[in-house]
Write a protein that binds this DNA or RNA. Structure first.
Lengths: 224, 224
DNA sequence: CGGGACATTGAGGAGAATCAAACAGGGTGG
DNA sequence: CCACCCTGTTTGATTCTCCTCAATGTCCCG
């Protein structure tokens, strides 16, 4: 998932469940901290996330890291390029995964509908990544963090006592590496949002959205 | 094309020509300055670039712009998401395009091989975009500009008197919006590379790579 | 020759990074 | 059960990269 806002909030939700006949393999379960695959591994399966959260990362030789995406329920991860994975993927929060053979993506012979659905997922991925470019290249720290919270609100926010609660299973460092910032800047920005009463920080991994409208404005760059 | 370097320089060149039987439409020609499509347009065709250069952009309400990619010969542009274009696309340098019906991507009925090739192109696109994330999120101005020149060198560099010549059909502003910088920073960085004798600026749209090795080092963040 | 668009250069400032220190909080072992 | 430690987070002070604003320069075209 590419946590970004670019105007139209409610892009169609990712397919809740991909259609299929009996081409389905049994679901897989993995604990937080487990690795699903590494950069360079050859791709045998794609995975649709049923529950839990994944993290996709790339590294530079000198250790700089970029979190490419967080994978949330509905998302599909593992698209191959030249048959290989180009990110590392590991588990942030215990996941249940529906695996699909790579061949289901690459040829329609097995199950045309599944083939089509996987292809559409790949195309949506491209579009989502384009949004994320704007975030990385053109948004300020506050805008980035606000965008991030905004999208999480829409995707995994839970109503609690009139407010929306968002759980952040990833570390501040993960968020930083996703947004192109440092841990310190993410932390400071969250504090700043808290002090301006736009959010409340229930605990390190739980945020309450107190003024969603203000948050959304910030994410788009309103100076007001 | 996502002009980035992440270690392995010579990723497989984009398919020089996509296989096909008679499903081919006649090629289209467009002059510099022409628009191929706009964000929100419904996708009827994909295009493979035969010659010339395209620019893909997205805009924010307040006018901030992100150049998503430059399209060079071999590249395919126009991948739909929910049937729509999510970027503007216009012509930087007169192009000759091979159009393919969107249906060729979305179903294999017409021409399975073409369908497969278009799908692979989409998957390569995803991988290339992931590289570009690292560039936007984690690289310094010098690293970005060096990376940009490096990749252009490999893709469209011409040998001239022992050195490699690279033509930049886009403006400094385009480069800036692609790399997440300002025009001024791009200009200053080019001057800096020129003064350190890594490049020479033949004219505004033509650069000579004098020390490719040094350029490559810079692009990866060597401080030396 | 003059105008306009684009590029370069400079001075100054803002925002985020860096460096460093205090602060949770959760898990372990005594 | 509590003290301790380890890791991750917050906060502060300072630095530095890149942006902003402004002026000048260059090239192309009528």
């Amino acid at each position: 998932m590419y946590v970004t806002v670019t105007g139209d909030q409610d892009q169609p939700a990712p397919l809740a469940s991909i259609s299929s006949k009996i081409t389905r393999s049994p679901t897989a379960h993995l604990k937080a901290g487990a690795h699903l695959y590494f950069e360079g591994d050859s791709v045998k399966w794609l995975y649709q996330i049923k529950t839990g959260v994944l993290r996709l990362t790339r590294m530079m030789e000198d250790g700089r890291r970029q979190v490419i995406a967080f994978g949330y329920p509905g998302d599909i991860v593992g698209f191959p390029s030249d048959g290989l994975h180009h990110t590392d993927c590991d588990v942030l929060e215990d996941v249940c995964l529906q695996p699909y053979r790579r061949s289901m993506l690459e040829s329609g012979h097995g199950d045309p509908q599944l083939h089509y659905d996987l292809l559409q997922a790949a195309l949506r991925e491209i579009s989502a990544m384009q949004d994320h470019f704007m975030m990385l290249g053109r948004k300020s720290a506050v805008e980035k963090v606000a965008s991030f919270l905004c999208v999480l609100t829409h995707r995994v926010g839970k109503e609690v006592g009139g407010y929306t609660q968002v759980v952040l299973p990833m570390s501040r460092g993960d968020i930083a590496d996703f947004l192109g910032l440092t841990t310190e800047t993410v932390s400071r920005t969250l504090t700043q949002l808290r002090k301006s009463r736009i959010i409340a920080i229930e605990n390190i991994h739980t945020v309450i959205i107190r003024r969603p409208q203000a948050l959304s404005s910030l994410s788009l760059g309103d100076r007001t």
